[in-house]
């Protein structure tokens, strides 16, 4: 479709609005968390250390995708592809670590779901779990982009898809930082 030259690309703008929407979803959950926390029957617990390590991984992945974007703009496609793969791997590692964290909690008899679960652990499961799904969505998009980049015979030098991708990735990163601070600070 024909668009006029405006400062921000419509896709990027749409993503900004979508980000606001996702923020509202987590705002709903974290405010429910605060309400619940002040009610009796709340069992606080320490977040396993692996959640902190996973935070380092997702921060690193933000750096790599930013570097990938820069390399794309400078037409260094080989480096760009490598960095995108590193980003996806870091994202996958993030998911694996958090999943391990859930298992560690279950092993320590802090149940997230089923009988005997406390709502504090359930909240961690829902909030972190939903965030994981968003990271997973990002990885799927990354992989799809990679497949398209390797497959297509015509070269596409438009930076918009890469920019949208990195914008989303940074967002998921910041979202986790917020949730991490929230979960640690409040509990």
């Amino acid at each position: 479709m024909m668009t006029e030259n405006k400062k921000i690309h419509p896709y990027k703008f749409t993503l900004w609005v979508a980000m606001g929407s996702i923020v509202m979803m987590f705002a709903g959950l974290t405010s429910a968390y605060i309400v619940k926390r002040n009610q009796p029957n709340w069992q606080g617990f320490e977040l396993p250390a692996i959640f902190t390590y996973s935070t380092v991984f997702i921060l690193l992945s933000s750096v790599t995708i930013q570097l990938a974007l820069r390399n794309f703009r400078q037409r260094r496609m080989q480096v760009y592809r490598q960095l995108m793969i590193v980003t996806a791997v870091l994202g996958a590692a993030f998911i694996a670590m958090q999943w391990t964290g859930f298992l560690q909690l279950e092993a320590a008899n802090i149940k997230i779901i089923r009988q005997g679960s406390n709502v504090s652990a359930s909240f961690l499961g829902v909030i972190a779990g939903l965030h994981l799904l968003h990271v997973l969505g990002g990885i799927v998009a990354l992989v799809a982009m990679m497949i398209r980049a390797f497959r297509s015979r015509t070269k596409n030098y438009s930076a918009v898809p890469v920019e949208v991708m990195s914008q989303y990735w940074h967002f998921v990163d910041f979202l986790w930082i917020y949730l991490f601070v929230f979960l640690n600070w409040i509990s």
Binding site: V17, A18, G20, S21, I22, M24, M25, A27, G28
Partner: peptide, 8 residues
């Protein structure tokens, strides 16, 4: 856009 996610 701001309220449906909360319902979700």
């Amino acid at each position: 856009v701001l309220s449906f996610p909360v319902l979700f």
